[in-house]
Design a protein around this nucleic acid. Sequence first.
DNA 1: TTGTTATATGATAATAATTCTCCTTTGAAA
DNA 2: TTTCAAAGGAGAATTATTATCATATAACAA
Lengths: 140, 140
Amino acid sequence: MKVTEIRNKIIEKGLKVTPQRIAILEAIIKLNNHPTAENILDYIRDNHPNIATATVYKVLDALASNKLIKKVKTERDVMRYDAVMESHHHLYCSESDRIEDYKDNELNELLEKYFETKGIPDFQIEDIKLQIIGKFMTNR
Amino acid sequence: MKVTEIRNKIIEKGLKVTPQRIAILEAIIKLNNHPTAENILDYIRDNHPNIATATVYKVLDALASNKLIKKVKTERDVMRYDAVMESHHHLYCSESDRIEDYKDNELNELLEKYFETKGIPDFQIEDIKLQIIGKFMTNR
DNA sequence: TTGTTATATGATAATAATTCTCCTTTGAAA
DNA sequence: TTTCAAAGGAGAATTATTATCATATAACAA
């Protein structure tokens, strides 16, 4: 993803384009491993040695509330961030902090069809996310 | 659930039975709304005015690691606790903090069958939890 | 019942991620 | 270039949770 594309994403949302915002969004996209705020800070400190911690959080909030990134919460209590905005599920390692995206349209259709006919009493479904817990058979 | 039953649950796990543990486990069962540590404290303070906050957390940890309760993590960052130990899913209100259990064996079987045949490359599934986000059509 | 000991509790300090405050800087529209 | 709302920086504050450690108590045995 080129910087121009990232700039455009930010402009499309009516946000001001700042070096910090570009760096942070770029970091989340490049890292592609659901980084924490700290991971992001470490990554961008090379090129932005003066960025403030609070700025990172503020930018992450701004990006998340403008749907440029998603917040991902885990069992342990650090927020993690994801730049993949298509609806998708997550694979959680039961032994480490590793999290991977899991996209499966066949599954989405299956679930959609299932709940369409069955439904849930007194509940209007907006989104379904699977947390698939287990063990990765490969190291990343 | 009678106190004797709660005592037995604790004894079965080889834990010492203390008034604090009974009160906390009882509170989670009675409240039945995935309370936070604070909710639990408020609830039991009537009968246990001197219980320490740290004790509540320690008891919650002890109960969770002995599989008498489950920790439930939400988008906001307070841990919540659940005494329903059968594998089940959760309905999350997109507008409030309400969380309800969702049990559906038909769905579990469907998912099991789906992943049994399809599988996930390089991943060994241990458990699948659905986060179903939407709106409740009733107030509790 | 009493004594013993490992374990649990209570009080309070510490921690760590995140948020707030407030002042300065900057992007972008005119 | 000017203007000014919005964004960033620095560091204090907040808040849920954990750690520490002295005291109390459950469970077991005598």
